[in-house]
Amino acid sequence: MLRLDQIHKNYGAVRAVRGISLEVPRGQIVGILGPNGAGKTTTVRMIAGTLPPSRGTVAVDGFDTLAQTRQARQRIGYLPEGTPLYPEMRVASYLRYRTKLFGLPRGVQRTATERAIERCWLTEMRTRRIGTLSKGYKQRVGLASALLHSPPLLILDEPTSGLDPAQIAQTRKLMRELAGDHTMLVISHILPEVERACDRIVIISAGTIRADGSPADLIRHAAGSGTVLAVCKANPDTLAQIPGLNIKKTNKMDDGWTAFECEGESVPAETLRERIGAACAAQGTAIRELRTVGGSLEEVYIGLIEQSNRDDAEGAP
């Protein structure tokens, strides 16, 4: 559905995007994560066709965004960051106007507008001026506008930015509903949102892809090399005998419990937890806490960004 082949974008001497390659199959929901200034929005603009890459190609459904601009843009529904809209227009008029820009036949314009209004729960707001709507409703108008021409690829740049929790929940629900019919790129820095909504996560930092995989894979990968924290009443020697386990730190607590920070030697953290549990059970010692440290998407993300910053400081690509 979407193919990025070694795309670069330079703003003068600043290399905003440095050779990003990505392939997204039809129907997949991809979350693009990254800190501010990582190159997410620049990448998305190159996909949407509003910004040409300095180097490399972007193809949407097989159509090159530079050579076959019209065909490529027909296949994209784009919700830019901040949802820019015309405040003086009424909701239905704005959507009708967008159908004309996308060249929908006259007979289809009305039905497409009505369908988008219904789908984005805008029926009661259809005659309201956009400038008088709340931020959440404006977001829905932006989404409706992106959906009008039933594009196979939807690009949503910060779709829940600035919304209150209820509005975030509504937008998330809408995204889930849309997921079946569209390939989606969701750009966000709200990690739980991306983790919940997306099949795949791409982490961008300093203009390059730092990680790419399903949320579970990324967490598992990080957790595999993570530390296991066990708070139990076991003897340190008992734990030391567990194959593949290396006790990094022991902290004796006042109440008789001991906190062990353990690392696996070529053993995934999951297996390590199982072994600690089994050893304690065999000795009949109680366990109060047994968990992997460094096993959340947030920790994966922060770890990767810190690594990226270090690489950047050292002048590595």
């Binding site: 949407a48 066709g49 509003t50 843009r73 830019p80 901040g82 820019p84 015309y86 820009l101 060249g103």
Partner: peptide, 11 residues
Amino acid sequence: AGTIEPLMAAP
């Protein structure tokens, strides 16, 4: 206003 962005994204 940034409305140039959706305008330029249209075919």
